[in-house]
């Protein structure tokens, strides 16, 4: 039996008005690995992520999840699929009118039928899993710091035990210590929960620490997906600048 990739984007073309964002782009993430997507600002990394999540409909091309095309899925299957995907948006995207507890319980309440006490227990476990204390449960998102909000967002993304996790700039706006801790958290969750992670990031340290594979988005296409050291040697002016520039760690 052929093993399919958890997520596989084939021949994606996205256009906003007349401007192409992606032109015949191919991307895949390997199972059980962390794949980082890098690219300049405005190169369409977030658009790619949103396309894979089904938030943006590409003009051409298809997204396959474990070999199944999103387009061909029925309503119930899409629901099932969404349950197996967790997303952490850049700002956390927590519902600001709900407490952290209720935020985490939104997916759990929607898709399961468990007792309130058990739900609270599970939510409390998840919040501690991402490194917050259970005191944070009764706070509102506006009462948390940026780093805590990201962690709470991650707890919500992990609520239904997804197999595939999308992270949009998970360490942006965190101090180096918090960013490192967040990287470690992603790594430990990956091994213990057998996650496949797709991560859009600008953080070179984060790439170095966590990513098994790096995909480079240049000129509306993914130029290369490979291990970091091979990517760093890739012959392209932007890639060279990116990995060998003044802020690089590869020297």
């Amino acid at each position: 039996m052929k093993r399919y990739h958890p997520v596989d984007a084939k021949g994606i073309t996205t256009k906003f008005g007349r401007k192409f964002v992606h032109k015949d782009l191919n991307f895949h993430a390997e199972e059980g690995k962390i794949t980082g997507i890098v690219g300049g600002s405005g190169s369409g990394k977030s658009v790619l992520m949103n396309t894979m999540l089904g938030l943006i409909e590409p003009q051409c091309g298809e997204i396959f999840f474990n070999g199944l095309s999103r387009k061909k899925l029925k309503r119930n299957d899409i629901r099932e699929l969404n349950n197996s995907i967790g997303v952490l948006f850049q700002g956390g995207a927590l519902f600001s009118s709900l407490t952290i507890l209720d935020n985490i319980l939104v997916p759990l309440r929607e898709y399961t039928n468990l007792s309130e006490q058990l739900l609270r227990g599970i939510a409390s476990m998840k919040i501690q899993m991402v490194g917050l204390t259970s005191e944070a449960l009764d706070l509102y998102p506006s009462e948390l710091s940026g780093g805590m909000r990201k962690r709470a967002g991650l707890a919500r993304a992990l609520a239904l035990d997804p197999k595939l996790l999308f992270l949009d700039e998970p360490t942006a706006g965190l101090d180096p210590i918090a960013a490192h801790a967040f990287d470690e958290l992603i790594l430990s969750l990956k091994t213990s929960m057998d996650l496949t992670v797709v991560m859009v990031t600008h953080d070179l340290d984060s790439l170095l620490n966590t990513c098994d594979k790096v995909a480079v988005l240049i000129n509306k296409q993914i130029a290369i997906i490979d291990s970091l050291h091979k990517v760093a040697k890739y012959d392209n002016p932007w890639v060279k600048e990116y990995f060998n520039g003044p802020r690089s760690r590869f020297n």
């Binding site: 609270r120 227990g121 409390s124």
Partner: peptide
């Protein structure tokens, strides 16, 4: 590892 992670994350759950 999953059990280890979960057990490390539980504590007395906050009261309702």
């Amino acid at each position: 590892t999953l059990m280890k992670l979960v057990i490390a994350s539980i504590s007395c759950s906050a009261g309702d």
